[in-house]
Design a binder for these strands. Structure first.
Lengths: 231, 231
DNA sequence: TTTTGTTGATTGATCAGTCAATCAAAAATA
DNA sequence: TATTTTTGATTGACTGATCAATCAACAAAA
């Protein structure tokens, strides 16, 4: 069996195994032995190729992000109008692969890990920015910038929230319902916002401090997905 | 120093210490020694009172939930109209205590833990249901049931999403901005939904499968907060 | 003297990471 | 072509550290 050129094969097998084991176990507290066993190799080999458990985990989250990114690129290519692109972005994030229990569990585990690992956090920040930025780009074609920023933030939050709620399997919101909820949000805010450009009038009971635009961060480095940027 | 009646004091000190250490460390992978040290006692004492690490952790999440619940009860008591109650619910969830970095980190850690621990999951499901149910009760006073259900689900998701995004400290959305975003969502959907009771018309590019109402779970046990129910 | 609170010391298990050794393919040499 | 050498792939066995959990013992109140 020992042939030359095994390295890329093993690396991929180990990363895939890690994702699987993490998703299955629902936590990053899995052993190198578990991962190696799942990949059908010895624990020592995993260390040989990745140096440490942390490195293997980092590679695993990179692969998760890479997958999401390439799905997004593909989906955006197919859509023509800004509105259609918004729908495409939403749909990709709830695509079956992303919504698989294992994948959700893995994302969640990485979110938790981000509290400790600076590097993990960096990757998730890239994801969060990218999602917001992609939404923003198309919203700007439909709305004034400040409204677009607000709605991009809201839609991104709703997507993440539906995702995390799904992880509990408490509110069995399915893929289609999640998509529909997010679409409804967009539709409603596009409607009310374009009809009264000042933002939604807050005849609210609570002091809503008006449109939230001015509270949002500005001039943040744009991480828009028009191809070619880090993996 | 050894006096009688220490038990409740020590229990509270240990639970508080656990929350603190978990939030600080950003993970449940903290040692009993860490917790005990933070509480100023020996690790053996923590075992003495809680039997196991798992029990201590369960008590910790219970305390988190109890706190949120009592805040909610208080906030609801003050609000009069349904619309004001909705704002109160939103505000409580983004109350300063909840939004403290430590607390956010702790919640996130428990979400991850819920993938493995059935008991932890149960508690978080209670939280998720309660949030949705509280929103729903007041929305029903303003909208048809199916629309109310949809919007309750959406608002709950947005709250959770803003929360998790906050955990990354990437999109520095503050408390006020988070509240404003959620209020905007409610305002927009209340506006569009009451004007066209069929739900938001989906002249969407993507097949939004119409209003999501029928996809949402029905007849789920209501966990409404009108006082007296489990802790 | 019984009860309650408290701890130091210890145990047993689990793991990440290391290392020396093995094996087989490929490359170099005769 | 036959051989030796080098190199990459792979593992079993081991180490050192960490930790949850236990227990026997002691101290102060009742």
């Amino acid at each position: 069996m020992p042939k030359v050129g095994m390295e890329p094969v093993r690396r991929k097998a180990l990363v895939d195994a890690a994702l699987r084991v993490i998703g299955d176990h629902g936590s990053l507290a899995v052993t190198m032995s578990d991962i190696a066993r799942q990949a059908g190799v010895s624990p020592a080999l995993a260390h040989h190729y990745f140096g440490s458990k942390e490195h293997l985990l980092i590679e695993t989250i990179r692969s998760l992000l890479r997958q999401l990114r390439s799905d997004t690129v593909a989906a955006l290519k197919a859509a023509q109008t800004p509105r259609a692109r918004l729908s495409a972005i939403i749909r990709v994030n709830f695509h079956a692969d992303q919504f698989a229990p294992d994948t959700i569990a893995a994302w969640l585990a990485f979110y938790a890990e981000a509290q400790r690992s600076e590097e993990t956090r960096r990757f998730l920040v890239i994801y969060a920015r990218r999602l917001r930025s992609n939404l923003l780009a198309d919203l700007k074609a439909l709305l004034p910038t400040d409204a677009a920023e607000r709605i991009a933030e809201g839609a991104a939050a709703m997507i993440d929230g539906l995702y995390i709620r799904q992880s509990l399997k408490s509110a069995p919101i399915g893929i289609e319902a999640s998509i529909a909820l997010t679409e409804d949000y967009l539709n409603a805010l596009l409607a009310t916002t374009s009809s009264s450009p000042e933002g939604v009038k807050a005849e609210t009971a609570a002091p809503s401090s008006g449109p939230a635009g001015h509270l949002l961060p500005q001039g943040r480095r744009d991480d828009h997905i028009e191809p070619s940027r880090d993996q």
